[in-house]
Design a protein around this nucleic acid. Structure first.
Length: 251
DNA sequence: GCGACAG
DNA sequence: ATCTTGTCGC
């Protein structure tokens, strides 16, 4: 079983991944094509080491009301991840858990916007994980990253942007004290709107609420995930959210 | 050849 | 991302 994963690892073709990303980028819309925002989803993945050295990914998709930012629903699952982390190819490693989680969340709630942990078009091929999610689901998405991957900084007025080789804006840097986050469009939204919306979701800590809650849930859930031997997704019991118990999401 | 390099 | 000891401060 471990050999099977090793095989997949070796077969992973960077060239084909690049082709797929060029396709994703071609289909990404960096304009404001979203409606009234009532529900925002946060996506994140955490990892734990399996008994035999495999990576087990725990993916979470949580829906929050907007602008009140109260948890409404959450879907989570875990599975063995055979794709290695390669800078620029993060989506191929995390989509395996994020896609099923988001798909199931969308079955329960009508989501207007998705915040993904990672970059959107602030990527060497304009196809960061937030763009993958946005294009694949054809849903407005924004990438929120803690570190830069691509692009050079450029001060414009009182703001700092990230621009590509052609000088085109690809992300906005939002600074809070000594820390900063990189906000870039994933799909169906502009750089300006991405930054404006994310700012309205900054509550406590460094990340916007949907991302912070997803991150918190992901870390809590991985502690209660048992051994997973196959690559098939395993559903995770999710904390009840909404009316009565939103306390679980506090931390 | 030498850095840079999301999570 | 994950691992991981000690330390600073409310």
């Amino acid at each position: 079983m471990l050999e099977a994963c090793r095989l997949v690892r070796n077969l992973f073709a960077t060239a084909k991944a690049y082709r797929a990303q060029r396709w994703i980028a071609e289909h990404a819309l960096v304009e404001d094509r979203y409606g009234l925002v009532r529900v925002v989803a946060g996506l994140d993945v955490a990892y734990k080491r399996g008994r035999h050295g495999e990576d087990v990914g725990v993916g979470v998709a949580v829906a929050l009301s907007y602008p009140s930012l109260k948890p409404l629903a959450c879907e989570a699952l875990a599975r063995v991840i055979c794709v290695p982390y390669v800078p620029g190819l993060l989506a191929f490693r995390e989509m395996a858990v994020l896609a099923p989680a988001l798909a199931r969340l969308l079955r329960r709630v009508s989501v207007d916007l998705v915040l993904v942990d990672g970059h959107g078009i602030a990527h060497p091929r304009r196809a960061g994980i937030a763009t993958h999610v946005g294009v694949v689901f054809d849903i407005p998405s924004i990438g929120v990253a803690k570190k830069r991957l691509y692009g050079r900084e450029k001060a414009v007025g009182d703001k700092t942007l990230l621009v590509d080789d052609g000088g085109r804006p690809i992300a906005m840097i939002i600074e809070r004290g000594r820390s900063r986050i990189y906000v870039s469009p994933g799909h169906r939204i502009s750089v300006e709107s991405s930054a404006r919306l994310v700012k309205t979701m900054l509550k406590r800590g460094r990340l916007p609420e949907p991302t912070r809650v997803a991150d918190s849930l992901t870390k809590s859930l991985k502690r209660v995930v048992g051994e997973i031997s196959c690559c098939d997704p395993v559903s995770l019991r999710t904390p009840q959210c909404g009316s009565n118990s939103r306390n679980i999401f506090s931390s």
